[in-house]
Computed example of a mutant assay.
Amino acid sequence: MNIDHQKKVLLTGGRAPVTLELARLFAHAGQEVYVADSFSSQLTKASNGVKEAFTVHSPVQHFTSFIADLLKIVQERQIDLILPTCEEVFYVAKGKSVLEKYCNVFCPDLTYLLKLHQKYEFIKLVAEKGLLAPRSVFITSKEELPSAWEKIGEEAVLKPVFSRFGSHITFFDKTSIPKLNFPNGEYVVQKKISGQPICSYSVLLEGEIVAHTQYKVEFSAGNSAAIHFRHIEHSKIENWIRTFFDGEKVTGQFAFDFIETEKGEIFPLECNPRATSGVHLFAGRALPSSFLGEKRELLKPSLQTNRMIALAMLIYGWRNKGLWKWLKAMHQSKDVIWSWQDKKPFFYQFYSYIAMLKLSRTIRKSPLEATTFDIEWNGDDK
């Protein structure tokens, strides 16, 4: 992609802090930034780095209208690049053949995305690559659970093949099987792996890793949604990612959740083929060039970079590691929302959070589930 002049970039998923981060980075790099989301109180609309924000249809409920909305923005604003950030990426990918007639779309095809998003298919793909994978069994009903557990043979985890934030996860052993109650559907029963959770985030351009980071999960909201981020060097994970993508000429953002055992073994649990909080660890003007096609050395954050979602740390963080470690992390880390050059999103986040709470009550879902209910892909091809 030629980047010798200013580009017009459309970020979808404007509700997310990572989208705000990307909007600021692109604006700082001299690009013209637009955002779109089906949540009208999207956080990123308050940023002075955003030229214009749009409210679009929910891709879950109105896919055709969602693509039509994006197409209208692309044509009227002469967008050069669409960059999906959240789970709407699956719907953008589904409409990619239409959208890419008018601009570049930074995501793989839907078929490849779903191999990574569906948790059992992902584990199969990991094994095909010759990498370690947790022992896993696919089931569709509670009646299959005893035989699945026999194949695992020890403490296991039950989770839907489509889920996020560690939600709807149940740990169990043989004695607790009769007590489990869950609706029929597609699940993976997986051996529980003990160790240190580590998340990675990578940007790939035509199969080449152009940006990469990883960070330990130490503070989280819910079972696994990290809210504090510190870049670490980890050659085993970097080599794992290179092996996994070897021979794949894909373009997109890919994040993995790993467990590192006491023996130093690396086990992947799932893949999020979209932007994740690893974005917050990058600073300056360099990351946008990874999306805009500029060839360069592998981009990594500065060592020991510390970021946090301060509001989430105040609500959840103190429950995770004890008061002293929480206070130390709060003192050493920079909030991902606050910026002296772009103050409005910090104050707007409270309005956005209240709007999300109201929405969660209306749709009778938890606040965490409400953040994605209108954009998430759960295998429903509508």
Rank of each mutant, 00 (worst) to 15 (best):
N2P: 04
Q6F: 03
K7T: 07
V9E: 03
V9A: 01
L11R: 04
V18F: 14
L20D: 06
E21Y: 07
A23D: 06
F26T: 08
Y34N: 05
A36F: 01
D37H: 00
F39C: 00
L43A: 03
K45G: 02
G49Y: 12
V50K: 10
T55C: 03
H57V: 00
H57F: 02
F63R: 11
A68M: 09
D69C: 06
D69N: 13
K72D: 14
I73P: 02
Q75G: 06
D80C: 00
D80Y: 06
L83W: 04
E87F: 00
V89C: 02
K94Q: 15
S97E: 15
S97K: 13
V98F: 08
L99V: 05
E100Q: 14
K101W: 03
Y102H: 12
N104G: 08
N104C: 09
C107H: 01
C107I: 08
L114H: 06
K115T: 13
Q118S: 04
Q118P: 00
K119N: 04
L125I: 06
V126S: 02
L131D: 05
L131H: 02
P134Y: 11
R135Q: 11
L145Y: 08
S147Q: 15
E150A: 15
I152V: 07
A156M: 10
V161H: 02
F162C: 00
I169K: 09
T170V: 12
F171T: 07
K174E: 13
T175Y: 09
K179P: 00
F182D: 00
Q190N: 10
Q196A: 11
Y201D: 03
L204Y: 13
L205G: 02
G207H: 11
A211G: 14
H212P: 02
Q214V: 14
Y215A: 08
K216Q: 12
F219V: 04
G222Y: 04
A225P: 01
A226T: 15
E233Y: 10
S235R: 14
S235Q: 12
S235T: 14
E238H: 11
N239S: 14
W240C: 07
R242H: 14
G247V: 05
F258M: 07
G264W: 13
E265D: 15
L269V: 14
N272I: 04
N272K: 01
R274P: 05
A275H: 01
G278M: 11
F282W: 04
F282N: 03
G284W: 15
L292E: 07
G293D: 04
M313I: 12
I315T: 10
G322H: 06
L323N: 10
K325L: 14
D335S: 13
V336D: 02
V336K: 02
S339F: 09
S339P: 01
D342Q: 04
D342T: 11
Q349Y: 10
Y351I: 12
S352D: 07
T362C: 05
P367M: 05
